[in-house]
């Protein structure tokens, strides 16, 4: 766990978005914007991911999928809601099948507004998420240290 703090991996899940934000997320990872220079990498496997990018609102069917993906990710983890639909539900808020933004299902750390969210905004969101991720892993490391110390003390006594 100690060595991965500087290069978190991204997992992208398309909630019920219109695809606009999804292709902007993809555009972020391709040469013109190139989010990979920030040390993040796109992955398709939730078990190896550290940052979850959710686009689009939550509907009754994908709620379980989003929850499951979130649970499969190892701690510490950060969630970024990309686009106004993932933040609040957006234009589709009044639709009969939309429950609301991503925060109705999982805790969201960074909100990226926009319809569709611009790549620059998404990059900003990713940078913020990397910051939060680093902070969380530091806290986690400190906790582990604390525990080890306590265990040592316990052994000595």
């Amino acid at each position: 766990m100690a060595n991965i703090t500087r290069s978190p991996w991204l997992l992208h899940y398309d909630g019920s978005s219109c695809n606009g934000c999804d292709i902007e997320v993809l555009a972020c990872l391709t040469p013109v914007y190139d989010a990979e220079r920030l040390g993040v990498m796109n992955t398709g496997d939730p078990m190896q991911a550290d940052i979850l990018l959710v686009t689009g609102g939550i509907n009754s069917q994908n709620q379980d999928t989003v929850k499951q993906l979130y649970d499969q990710m190892p701690r510490p983890k950060v969630v970024v809601a990309v686009g106004v639909c993932a933040c609040t539900g957006g234009v589709f808020k009044d639709c009969y099948n939309i429950l609301g933004g991503a925060d109705t299902t999982i805790p969201v750390d960074v909100y990226v507004p926009g319809c569709a969210a611009r790549p620059q905004a998404i990059m900003d969101g990713i940078i913020k998420a990397v910051g939060i991720f680093q902070q969380r892993s530091n806290e986690y490391k400190a906790q582990v240290k604390e525990k080890k110390k306590a265990a040592k003390k316990g052994a000595q006594n």
């Binding site: 019920s16 978005s17 509907n59 069917q61 589709f92 009044d94 009969y96 939309i98």
Partner: peptide, 14 residues
């Protein structure tokens, strides 16, 4: 299918 079903056709009432 149905992971992205939003029901935007239903919005005509609103």
């Amino acid at each position: 299918i149905g992971f992205i079903h939003r029901g935007l056709e239903g919005l005509v009432d609103k």
